[in-house]
Design a protein around this nucleic acid. Sequence first.
DNA 1: TTGAAAGCGCTAACAG
DNA 2: CTGTTAGCGCTTTCAA
Lengths: 358, 358
Amino acid sequence: MGGQPTIYDVARAAGVAPSTVSRAFSRPGRVNAATAERIRQVAEELGYRANPLARALSTHRTQMVALVVSDITNPFYFEIIRGAEHAASAAGYTMVLSDTQESDRLERLILERAMPTVEGFVLASSRLSDTAIRMVAKQKPMVVLNRPVGGVPSVVPDIPRGTRRAMEHLGELGHDTITYVGGPEASWADGMRWRSALEAAHELELRVRRIGPNLPTVAAGVEAARELAKAPTTAVLAYNDQLAMGLMRGLTTMGARVPRDVSVVGFDNILAADLVTPGLTTVGAPLRSMGGTAVQNLLAYIGGASHGSTTPVVLPTRLVVRDSTAQRSRKRTSPAWGTTKVSGSASRAARSSSAGSR
Amino acid sequence: MGGQPTIYDVARAAGVAPSTVSRAFSRPGRVNAATAERIRQVAEELGYRANPLARALSTHRTQMVALVVSDITNPFYFEIIRGAEHAASAAGYTMVLSDTQESDRLERLILERAMPTVEGFVLASSRLSDTAIRMVAKQKPMVVLNRPVGGVPSVVPDIPRGTRRAMEHLGELGHDTITYVGGPEASWADGMRWRSALEAAHELELRVRRIGPNLPTVAAGVEAARELAKAPTTAVLAYNDQLAMGLMRGLTTMGARVPRDVSVVGFDNILAADLVTPGLTTVGAPLRSMGGTAVQNLLAYIGGASHGSTTPVVLPTRLVVRDSTAQRSRKRTSPAWGTTKVSGSASRAARSSSAGSR
DNA sequence: TTGAAAGCGCTAACAG
DNA sequence: CTGTTAGCGCTTTCAA
């Protein structure tokens, strides 16, 4: 009597059988319009709310989907989470969010634990093997984000196109050799970016080389700047925005100027890309709609749509040009900041020299 | 056949009654060690996983908590979400995340919808009235984040202390009058910050005035810079980091330099505060542990701890000094950038003049 | 169109 | 310690 009113309370108050109340809510057509109305009325007065858990027990429809990300910390996911959450709640679904902390063991655990509770999964940047993913996908509807997995629906950004645009942009600015600052070792996205860069370079008659692998973090970017200093180029393309930001910071403290001495391009267009100075030119992925489409597709699939669409849904990317890229300055062939090991005095020298040449 | 094995399957295979299987999992002590082991074994072989929904139906323990935020978009929540998620999953709980999109109607809806499903709520920056919150808190365990509500457990950052530190910092740098750039109108945090600033100003013999209200966004900050220009001060304290960042951007485009012409301090220490240039000096709130503590307290409360701790848990803040604050330059009393309406040419003039005085 | 009855998978008394 | 018996709140046959 203290708890929420149940279907029985409503039935009693409305003078009908419990099953009728149930019908009135789930299959309004199958019940006399008048009684349906009365039931609705009574339910309203009593403040009745159907218990989704009880419903789920027999129907297996929990109205919940899980979004599992590999690292909540990563700003890359912020917009994705947002897009996913909105899509889910717009469809009357509740979103469960879990973080696997880059651990495949934990990821498995989470999937197992959530399995009976949710109707489907969105796996963002999973650490699992393709076959492991396929196994899970056999048991519950699933869509994979940011990585194609054969036989499983997925949504990915159009990396080749975006990379191509970035390379064109750099080329047009007069940069003829570009350093790709690579991301995590086994990452599909990293491989894709590198290959796309190679291909674009070939077509555009640019040279591209690679350093890395690196963690996709600001700190790693700072570190990578040292690496870059050993054999500098006037333009770099980084695996992601955090790396690019770290790079900018590292370069700056070493006395190089962005974009004057080196143009920097990132990937993803996370929110902070517009906040840093100089603003980061980056290959924007449609983060929000990636999250949204993933959930929408998942729901469609849950709703019975044959997942024939097993070929990746690829979402358009676009180059967002800000201030971290500029015309190549041809005045100096070998920038002072990168001629040799960069010490404090060297960077100081570099700074004054570049100031002088202004 | 087909579906997941149930407790009955295990019982049959192990040659015991279903209830025994149930006990073996929930109250291992109350069952013969040998049989318990056998059951566990059989369960393992069959790949049995308890269905949390079914369990919840009778126990009302769903192992889920909800975190409801007012705007997933806001970077302020990122670390909070992370802290909350980790605390929840460390305790074997699943976290449901919902976004109320700043709408109290939606917030109510979400709470109602989630009510039967979760064991408790963490309400971050709720839009609901105190009484509305108390009503909900009567029905389910709840802890309110970032705002104290009488009679309901809450966790808040130590705003007075942080504000005081910020004011001291500014005072030590020689700034004697400070503009507080206010946040959203009805915000508890805004009121708190303003009052704390007033108080600190009084004690430190500084002057402080206020502009606003403003939305807590970068865009609003840019706008606020115009407002500030009408009656400039050499130092500003902004309601939050986004506002501060917008302010910096606005000031810069208007020809003022940060921190040379005006020192800027923000609130919260969101991740991006360390990414912008200049790095933003800010009153850091322990975002991650706010999320974590909120969930931990919620779980304790769910676990039966009397919520005697109805007085807010206040978490320490600290001043994070970066590069957006500096010694007041006493050379000019009235900076060129703010003498009058700022047009393009005026800002250009200001820029060169300040460059000249370098 | 409606009621009665039998579960969904698990837990919780209550006996033995 | 273990089996039996009722449910948790809702859906779903199956008759009426």
